[in-house]
């Protein structure tokens, strides 16, 4: 509410997904992580051929089918029912992760807790000692994909920065992130740190800097 009064509108979850989808070119093999990244597939126009990989053994994943065409044997990494595009293939887990770890995936889009200006990503735990440990495929994807983008809210619910000089949470992988799509901006991770490529209308650079825990650079 405050933000609206200040004259700019943060993107919604689907808005962030749609923004990232604009930048995925035809011909790429992409893996979309759980959460907002999964929504990106809905915003890639059907005529743009992008091959979606799902870690549980799908290459060429399609959208959720209508109820009468659902197949209980065909689920995505979030265990939602999905479809297979013409040309798609099923593989087992070691082959699925060979695609990832062998550097064959052009782009992986992950959710994040924190991203550092050196490209470090933290997205699986809030402390080294917590019981819940949900690594899943994130470490493999972060290291193995040719490029890693992160889609996340610019700050936490409490207003703490998620874009930082260094991550305070346990790392998923070091130096892996090349671009971040937040509800406020698109940022490139470069050798000099975060470079702002795009901001939501009405937000100025100083506003964005105030919500960021690392120095921002103009494009």
């Amino acid at each position: 509410m405050n933000e609206t009064r200040q004259g700019f509108g943060p993107l919604t979850r689907t808005g962030m997904a749609a923004r990232a989808a604009q930048d995925v070119p035809e011909g790429w093999y992409v893996n979309l992580g759980i959460g907002i990244p999964t929504l990106i597939a809905d915003y890639i126009p059907p005529e743009r051929e992008v091959v979606v990989h799902s870690e549980n053994g799908i290459l060429g994943m399609g959208p959720a089918p209508p109820p009468h065409q659902q197949n209980p044997w065909l689920v995505n990494a979030s265990t939602q029912r999905v479809s297979l595009r013409p040309g798609g293939a099923f593989v087992h887990h070691a082959d699925s992760f060979a695609m990832v770890r062998g550097g064959h995936i052009d782009l992986c889009v992950l959710g994040g807790f924190q991203v550092a200006e050196n490209g470090d990503l933290a997205n699986w735990a809030h402390s080294p000692t917590e019981t819940g440990r949900q690594i899943g495929g994130a470490m493999d994807l972060a290291v193995g994909a040719k490029r890693v983008w992160v889609v996340m809210e610019h700050t936490t619910k409490d207003g703490a920065a998620r874009l930082l000089r260094r991550c305070s949470y346990p790392l998923t992988a070091a130096g892996c992130v090349s671009r971040v799509y937040t509800n406020l901006a698109v940022l490139e991770v470069t050798p000099k740190g975060f470079v702002v490529l795009d901001m939501v209308p009405g937000l100025d650079f100083a506003d964005l800097q105030a919500r960021t825990g690392a120095e921002l650079h103009r494009a």
């Binding site: 887990h93 070691a94 990832v100 690594i135 899943g136 495929g137 493999d140 193995g144």
Partner: peptide, 12 residues
């Protein structure tokens, strides 16, 4: 608790 691809590759 280990990465899923490492789990698969250790098994393979």
């Amino acid at each position: 608790v280990i990465p899923q691809g490492t789990l698969a590759e250790r098994i393979r």
